[in-house]
């Protein structure tokens, strides 16, 4: 009885040490480029780029399989940062340059179901069960993932007004596109 317990315990201990050692000794460093790209992406995990999350998209970019302009939540900021990092030419964001929008919850209609809370990848929705929810505007990335699950359709995307605090110079790439359309 005791030998059995001891033998198994020792076996398990030895294997545990072996695996622990192996995980340190044979640690594989992931591609540093992927990590850098991943750090630039907004981590909304919204899947609008066509990849199942930000990290797979980062891997695809690093391999050169995906373009750098597929991330709508990141917008031009991300495209410019990626272009800078990878030495590629910046392009307008896929699907046209969207104005920045944030989600807005109509608090009269909200039933407090918490479904949008679970959908939000950046925890920008505040609320609890059976209490109305509200959006923390400064956190919202405009990924639209909360619109779909709402059972009472009380979430709408509203454009952010351009104010002196939020206004930026238009990027050259984004500005080039409308001109081309005119010409």
């Amino acid at each position: 009885m005791l030998t059995a317990i001891l033998a198994l315990a020792l076996l398990a201990l030895a294997f545990g040490l072996l695996l622990g050692y192996a995980s340190v000794r044979f640690k594989v460093d992931s591609d540093p480029i992927v990590d850098k790209v991943d750090a630039i992406l907004p981590q909304t995990q919204c899947g609008q780029c066509g990849f199942p999350g930000c990290h797979p998209y980062a891997e695809a970019i690093a391999k050169g399989e995906a373009d750098i302009n597929l991330c709508p939540p990141g917008g031009e900021t991300v495209v410019m940062a990626l272009a800078d990092l990878l030495g590629r030419d910046p392009k307008p964001v896929e699907g046209g340059v969207k104005e920045k929008r944030v989600a807005y919850i109509d608090e009269q209609i909200c039933i407090g179901c918490t479904l949008c809370l679970q959908a939000c990848p950046v925890d920008a929705i505040l609320g609890a069960a059976k209490h109305m929810h509200t959006i923390i505007v400064s956190e919202c990335t405009g990924c639209e993932l909360c619109v779909e699950p709402c059972p009472v359709d009380c979430i709408s995307m509203v454009p952010v007004k351009v104010e002196p605090a939020t206004w930026t110079w238009p990027y050259p790439a984004a500005a080039a596109k409308p001109e081309a359309n005119h010409g």
């Binding site: 059995a4 033998a7 198994l8 076996l11 398990a12 294997f15 695996l19 192996a22 044979f26 594989v28």
Partner: peptide
């Protein structure tokens, strides 16, 4: 040698899981 053959199943599961995990790490690295 210890006369504990009745622990075969659990010991084998342990051994197999560890060996596979270990080789996976080595293969991943090498």
């Amino acid at each position: 040698p210890l006369g504990i053959e009745y622990l075969r199943t659990i010991a084998f599961i342990l051994v197999i899981a560890v060996v596979v995990q270990f080789t996976e790490m080595v293969v991943h690295k090498t």
